[in-house]
Structures are given as structure tokens and as C-alpha cells.
Computed example of a mutant assay.
Amino acid sequence: MHDFTEIFCIVDDFFKKFEPIYWQFLKQENKRQRIRQATLSLSEIVAISIYYKTSQVHNFKMFFNLLCQFESKLFKDLPCYKNLITLINQHQLAIHALLYALSQKDESSYLWIDSTPLPVCKNKRIPKGHHALDEIASRGKSTMGWFYGCKLHLLMNQEGEIVNSDLSNGHIADLKKVEDLVNGLSATVYGDRGYISQPLKETLKEQGIDLITYPRKNMRVTLLPFSDEFHLRQRKRIETLIGLLKEKYHLVTSKHRSIAGFLAGVFSSLCAYQLCQKNKPKIHVIKSLAYP
């Protein structure tokens, strides 16, 4: 478990500038609903959500009990378990804003793209569905088989940092989210065979994006430059990133009871990775070289 004070300081630095804009936005969007500020600050609410994702505790109620027992001195007035969950879910938009600020919108020349399923229930319960998330979840198929839930689409740079992320229904094809992920960027993007599409490749070429993938078995084999061949082989590093999100930062869970709770959990996991993962899966980049 990471130091809560360290996480809080980083989060609080962001919300010192962003919080006035955030409350103004909420007032404009909810003119008929009165918005009350909680006893906890917005920074504390978001920091607790991220702190939970860095812990080894998979049950939020148990985490809350440990927080009351060992870290209660850090808070003036910690609300009850039910109210804390309500606050985190209510401010999932603030967690998303922090994630957007943490995303590395740099001028990296090389990026890697991939997606992963986020099942919201076990496969044997697929026929019954998940009523709390029926509006955003759907049946999809990945390399591991069928699932019911959503998909997380990620874009990673050579430092192992998340450049951009997006959520979609489970049945949405990976290549339909590529343009949203690379919007405003100019780089060479490496992906698996799920991103093969000549019309998409030509469209991205006009935007300054070069999409590189291995050909399918029934396609004509083209000789790639040595650098592209090398960078394609490093695509497994983004799978390492996804593995860290799932195993270390509790990205996938079937305990969500609302859409807001599901989104808050996903955004908190991504923020926890960006803030707390020290040894990110970096990729050594080489310059473009032709075959001898």
C-alpha cells in the first residue's frame, strides 16, 4: 500500500486549480438540484478512491474499516461507509478529470494501442445480464472467449505511461475507437491484427498517424523496416500494462452496483497506475533502419 499523504498532495495540487471550474460546471448542469459540499474535500474523496486501488484489499468495506482504524487522524470528519461510497460515485467526473490531466499528451513519435475486456459478471450469468449496468454493458468476444461488459481501449507511449484511454460497449470493434484515441496526435502507432483496416489506415495517414500491424495469414506479406518489426515485437509491453491494471490496481470487479460506481472504479484504477506505478513497462525505441 502506498503512502496516502503522498497521493493526497499530488491530487490536491491539481484540484486547487480545477475545483472552482468543477463546481461551476456542476451548478450549470444541475440547475434544479441543490449541490451540497461534503465534510470531506474533493481532494480527499478522490485520494481515498485512488488509495483503495493501491491497497491489497479487494473489499471496500474492509478497506473502510482499516482506514478508520489506522488513518482516521488524517481526516477531520470521515463519513460513514455508505456515504463515502455515495461521494466517490457522485464525483466520478472529478476522477476522470484528474485522469485526463495525468495522461501524457506528449509529442512521442511511437505509441502502442490495445484493448481489454471489462466483464461485469461471470459467464454463467450472461443470460441473466447485469441489470445495474445494462445501459452500457453488452456481450462481446475477446481472444479469451465471450464476456458481458465493456471494453477499455488504451494508448501507451515508450515510457509505459497511458497517453489516452476510452471506454466502449463490449461488442464494439477495436478499430472503431482508434480515431478517438489518436485525435490530435502525430506518431507511429503499433497494434495487433485486430486493427487491420486499409480505409482506417488511409484516413489516419492524412492526420499524420502511421498505423502498423502484422498482416493476417491470408494477406500478402510485406517486408517491414527493421525498426517497425522491432517495435511490433514490443507490443507485449502494453499487455503488461493491462496485466498490472487488473492484478495490482483492481481494474476488473463484479461488485459494481451502478454505472457511476463502475466508472469511478475504472478511472481510479487508471489514476492509481499513473501515480503509483514506479516501474512502468518501458520500451527501448530505435531509429528507422532499412534491411541490409
Results as ranks from 00 to 15, higher is better:
198 Q>L: 10
225 P>W: 05
285 V>D: 01
80 C>H: 10
135 E>V: 11
93 L>R: 06
35 I>D: 00
64 F>E: 06
242 I>K: 06
67 L>A: 09
200 L>P: 01
148 Y>E: 09
269 S>L: 08
107 E>F: 08
77 D>K: 13
215 P>M: 11
12 D>M: 06
269 S>M: 05
73 K>Y: 05
240 T>M: 06
34 R>V: 00
158 Q>W: 03
148 Y>V: 06
88 I>C: 04
175 L>E: 06
189 V>R: 01
150 C>A: 07
177 K>C: 13
172 I>K: 14
12 D>F: 03
157 N>T: 04
181 L>N: 07
279 N>Y: 03
6 E>S: 12
244 L>P: 01
172 I>A: 13
61 K>M: 04
28 Q>M: 11
207 Q>G: 07
198 Q>W: 11
289 L>S: 11
184 G>P: 00
115 S>A: 11
240 T>Y: 08
199 P>Y: 07
134 D>F: 09
69 Q>M: 14
109 S>L: 13
153 H>L: 08
214 Y>D: 09
236 K>C: 09
265 G>H: 02
261 G>Q: 04
147 F>C: 09
214 Y>F: 07
277 Q>D: 13
255 K>C: 13
160 G>S: 07
254 S>M: 06
95 I>R: 02
182 V>I: 08
187 A>I: 07
189 V>P: 01
170 G>W: 02
232 L>C: 08
199 P>L: 06
41 S>N: 10
28 Q>I: 08
28 Q>G: 05
273 Y>G: 05
169 N>Y: 12
60 F>N: 01
206 E>W: 05
7 I>E: 00
105 K>N: 10
13 D>M: 14
223 L>I: 15
276 C>Y: 04
288 S>H: 13
268 S>A: 15
126 I>N: 11
86 T>F: 13
104 Q>R: 15
112 W>K: 00
215 P>C: 11
57 V>I: 15
231 H>L: 14
110 Y>T: 11
60 F>L: 07
178 V>D: 01
209 I>P: 01
269 S>E: 06
88 I>Y: 03
75 F>W: 10
64 F>Y: 15
251 L>C: 10
211 L>G: 04
45 I>S: 01
15 F>Q: 02
17 K>A: 11
130 H>P: 02
90 Q>P: 02
40 L>M: 12
182 V>Y: 00
250 H>F: 03
130 H>Y: 05
258 S>L: 04
152 L>H: 07
227 S>D: 15
124 K>S: 05
34 R>L: 00
236 K>P: 00
235 R>N: 07
25 F>S: 15
279 N>E: 11
88 I>A: 05
169 N>P: 09
74 L>V: 10
47 A>F: 03
140 G>D: 08
44 E>D: 14
263 L>H: 14
288 S>N: 10
125 R>W: 14
105 K>V: 08
233 R>N: 13
36 R>Q: 10
51 Y>K: 04
283 I>L: 01
120 V>F: 03
277 Q>T: 14
140 G>F: 05
241 L>W: 02
150 C>F: 00
14 F>T: 01
201 K>V: 00
234 Q>H: 15
4 F>D: 06
212 I>M: 15
151 K>L: 14
53 K>N: 02
284 H>W: 13
213 T>E: 04
35 I>M: 03
227 S>C: 10
17 K>W: 09
38 A>S: 13
6 E>N: 10
257 R>T: 14
238 I>N: 01
198 Q>H: 10
158 Q>L: 02
162 I>M: 12
53 K>F: 05
260 A>C: 08
55 S>E: 09
88 I>V: 12
232 L>R: 02
